[in-house]
Design a protein around this nucleic acid. Structure first.
Length: 432
DNA sequence: TCTGGGGTCCTAGGACCC
DNA sequence: TCTGGGGTCCTAGGACCC
């Protein structure tokens, strides 16, 4: 028996304004009122304070360009530790109002305040207002807030007026907002779907919402059908309030400058990514059942391959050996490379018991212990104090020491299960 | 926005089975 | 050898998000 609750929900979406740049300004009052950007370590503007936006700086702009056109801009490297700390404080404050909070990203969350009016002695708009007030005061910079009957409408609201906006969208007023919203700005509709919609004379969110269900049903896939229902006021997208403890994939990508065609150097970059991906996997007690390696060229094309593992692992040496064995299948000595990536695939809970099936549980347990010790050392003395010799080049930025003699040797052939392999000459990201 | 890094979900179509 | 029907699992690739 299903219980359909038809009473309207009150969902809030909260968005930190220029979050990273604002964190920097909050931490260092001297920066307040000044144009600030973060992302210096990557050579591009990642987060841009409103003062910097006013100067015409946009996301992805290179530091070169910024220096040239606006010399007064303060450029800072990203400091994720600080941002996460402030992010935690942000979510904690919202949780004073309701436990139903979804941490959507480092600078955004959803909160379900349905039924909280009595408890808090306030109407929904006042609750939204109060949360915003608390956040602005506690964090030292502003947030934008939207209130609506579901996540899509709440999100639309928080985007409506920025920075420091508070937009309340009652059910009856939804069409007024949809009318002014280009279809491509709908949360979940990207440029591809938007141009498909345009071909059918759908230009605004209201055009989309007013389209007959039959047409939606036959022409669009499930996610878009759900968006359609939300724009029509239905509550579809549940809040995910449980903290994330699981991943299906974990990837690490790193760009290096200058680009290189040095095999050992490029391999060491890949090796380092493997180590970092494995560190993260182990932190969540996950192990991979597959892995993909990619190299990115100057022109942003990728080559790489994907391998299936015969058993789960989150141990760098295993994957590095594998990468080594196959490296020449996707590394071409005449090509210059800019970045390497690894993606751990098919991640699952790392149950040592499963390894009994393969008869090497004892060795695995020992190896796991070793890596737990490595993780502990790294935690205590800072990241990457201990790393594999194969990553040495990447860590030292030296061209001369590429000997991989220290990789733990293994006799058993563990990766029998190379069942599928794919050559790639295609862009990995939909950038074209 | 010609280019950072990290993710998720969905679907069509093939392989395989009865 | 061809025709019939139904189901499951897996994978590649598309699309989108921050």
């Amino acid at each position: 028996m299903s219980h359909i609750s038809s009473f309207p929900r009150a969902i809030i979406h909260i968005d930190g304004d220029a979050f990273f740049a604002s964190c920097e300004q909050a931490r260092n009052p001297k920066l307040q009122g000044k144009p600030v950007i973060t992302g210096k370590e990557r050579g591009i503007a990642a987060s841009i304070s409103y003062e910097a936006k006013a100067l015409g700086i946009t996301r992805g702009m290179s530091l070169h360009e910024i220096k040239k056109t606006c010399p007064g801009v303060v450029m800072l490297p990203s400091d994720y530790e600080t941002y996460s700390l402030l992010s935690k404080r942000f979510f904690m404050i919202v949780r004073r109002y309701t436990p139903e909070v979804e941490e959507y990203s480092i600078d955004e969350c959803f909160a379900d305040i349905t039924g909280m009016r009595r408890t808090l002695q306030m109407g929904y708009p006042e609750i939204a207002e109060s949360i915003k007030r608390d956040l602005d005061a506690a964090l030292g910079f502003t947030f934008s807030v939207g209130l609506g009957v579901n996540k899509s409408i709440a999100k639309l609201g928080s985007k409506w007026k920025k920075p420091s906006g508070l937009t309340i969208i009652p059910y009856q007023n939804i069409p007024t907002y949809l009318e002014k919203l280009p279809a491509v700005k709908i949360w979940g509709i990207g440029s591809n779907t938007a141009s498909f919609l345009e071909r059918h004379r759908i230009f605004t969110a209201l055009h989309f919402a007013r389209k007959h269900w039959d047409w939606i049903k036959t022409n669009l896939s499930k996610p878009f059908q759900e968006i359609w229902r939300e724009l029509n006021g239905e509550y579809v997208f549940q809040l995910e309030t449980e903290p994330k403890t699981n991943y299906y994939t974990i990837g690490k990508t790193k760009t290096f400058t200058p680009p290189s065609r040095d095999r050992k150097y490029v391999f060491s970059q890949l090796s380092k990514n493997i180590e970092n991906a494995c560190i993260k996997a182990r932190r969540y007690n996950l192990a991979a059942s597959g892995v993909a390696f990619y190299l990115r060229q100057q022109d942003f094309r990728h080559t790489g391959l994907e391998l299936k593992l015969s058993r789960l692992t989150a141990i760098p040496a295993d994957l590095i050996k594998l990468a080594d064995e196959h490296f020449d299948e996707f590394f071409y000595s005449k090509t210059e490379y800019r970045a390497t990536s690894v993606i751990l695939l098919g991640l699952q809970e790392d149950e040592t018991a499963q390894l009994d099936l393969f008869g090497d549980a004892i060795k695995m347990t020992e190896k796991k212990k070793l890596y737990e010790a490595v993780d502990a050392v790294n935690k205590k003395y800072g990241k990457h104090k201990l790393y594999l010799a194969s990553s040495f080049l990447a860590n030292k930025y030296s061209q001369h020491l590429g000997d991989r003699g220290d990789i733990p040797e293994r006799k058993q052939n563990m990766f029998l299960g190379e069942t599928k392999r794919r050559r790639l000459g295609i862009p990995m990201f939909s950038g074209e």
